[in-house]
Write a protein that binds this DNA or RNA. Sequence first.
DNA 1: ATTTTGACGACCC
DNA 2: TGGGTCGCCAAAA
Length: 124
Amino acid sequence: MPTKPARDAARAAIEAAVRAIPLGRVSSYGAVARQAGLPGRARLVGHVLRTSVDGELPWQRVLHADGRLAAPVGTALARLQARRLAAEGVAVHRGRVPAVHFAEQRDLDAALWRFGKEAASGRG
DNA sequence: ATTTTGACGACCC
DNA sequence: TGGGTCGCCAAAA
């Protein structure tokens, strides 16, 4: 009982949302927060990921809203994240991941772009 | 109890 | 593009 129930529930919801990001796709702190039922709590997501003890948590799939990695290019964390993403097929270029890799559709352009690719390759 | 910090993000120059 | 503001709020100082 040392911790507050509401906080634990929030943490659990956030970790669940992160685990729900499919392999090979990425999401953002803000999107994860919304998915966890905590709109506007992007910073809390960062906090939870930073302090999580779950070694299986695919934290590398969570990026900034603009596609940037969690940490600035050159830092150990950024290199680790890029490495882990590359291992699951997500290419990182100059510390960023293109919007196309995001699990949720960020904007109409991205959606149309993907639609075009998928339609062209006969898949939907 | 108060202040500062932080793996954020939308906005506005 | 790049940089500053403001809102959010859990932890740490």
